Computed example of a mutant assay.
Amino acid sequence: MQPAHQGAPGLAHGGLLATALDETLGSLNWLLRTIAVTGRLETDFVRPVPVGTTLYLEAEVTAVAGRKIYSRATGRVGGPDGPVAVRAQALFIEVKVDHFVHHGRQEEIRAAMDDPDQIRRARAFEVNP
């Protein structure tokens, strides 16, 4: 983490830690071959994370019920067996690509749809690739 990412002097900003957890948890949906958005993210900040520290993140899906995907993650300082610094539980909701077409910025949607390269067009709509 860079100094620009600090909250209190020398400590990582909690919002940045929550973002890292959200991205980590969201990547599980890619493994499930599902497009999903964050419905709820509950974060517990257990101990301060010094700026410049590597945070080891581990995540797992705990349940799937219809369109709901439940998951949790842990962030550890100093190594995969280090002390827990942050934990999160999340609920993701499965959506179709139309969700992004409907709610995204139209100029970017048009640019993606007009791209003749089929692979780049498809990648424009990937979530947490």
Results as ranks from 00 to 15, higher is better:
residue 116 P to A: 12
residue 110 R to V: 05
residue 120 R to M: 06
residue 94 E to D: 09
residue 100 F to V: 09
residue 79 G to M: 08
residue 66 G to D: 07
residue 76 R to I: 01
residue 100 F to D: 03
residue 77 V to A: 15
residue 81 D to Q: 05
residue 86 V to F: 02
residue 119 I to A: 13
residue 72 R to D: 15
residue 69 I to S: 07
residue 100 F to E: 00
residue 64 V to I: 15
residue 63 A to R: 15
residue 87 R to H: 07
residue 93 I to C: 11
residue 93 I to T: 14
residue 121 R to A: 04
residue 96 K to H: 12
residue 68 K to S: 06
residue 90 A to G: 14
residue 106 Q to A: 10
residue 109 I to D: 00
residue 75 G to Y: 12
residue 95 V to C: 05
residue 112 A to I: 00
residue 101 V to M: 06
residue 78 G to L: 12
residue 69 I to L: 13
residue 119 I to Y: 14
residue 77 V to E: 10
residue 110 R to A: 12
residue 84 V to S: 10
residue 110 R to I: 02
residue 92 F to V: 01
residue 67 R to C: 12
residue 82 G to W: 04
residue 77 V to R: 12
residue 68 K to G: 02
residue 121 R to I: 02
residue 74 T to S: 10
residue 107 E to N: 00
residue 74 T to R: 14
residue 75 G to E: 11
residue 71 S to M: 09
residue 70 Y to P: 06
residue 109 I to G: 01
residue 76 R to F: 03
residue 80 P to C: 06
residue 88 A to M: 03
residue 92 F to P: 04
residue 110 R to G: 04
residue 80 P to S: 10
residue 106 Q to S: 06
residue 107 E to V: 14
residue 103 H to M: 10
residue 81 D to G: 08
residue 77 V to L: 12
residue 63 A to M: 10
residue 98 D to P: 01
residue 82 G to F: 09
residue 120 R to F: 05
residue 115 D to C: 07
residue 100 F to R: 09
residue 72 R to N: 15
residue 94 E to H: 12
residue 118 Q to S: 06
residue 74 T to D: 03
residue 64 V to Q: 12
residue 71 S to K: 03
residue 63 A to D: 15
residue 91 L to D: 11
residue 112 A to H: 02
residue 105 R to N: 12
residue 103 H to T: 13
residue 66 G to C: 06
residue 67 R to N: 08
residue 92 F to M: 09
residue 66 G to T: 10
residue 103 H to V: 04
residue 72 R to G: 15
residue 75 G to W: 12
residue 95 V to F: 01
residue 94 E to N: 13
residue 88 A to Y: 12
residue 65 A to Y: 04
residue 89 Q to P: 00
residue 102 H to E: 08
residue 93 I to H: 05
residue 111 A to Y: 02
residue 96 K to M: 06
residue 82 G to N: 01
residue 103 H to P: 03
residue 75 G to S: 04
residue 108 E to L: 10
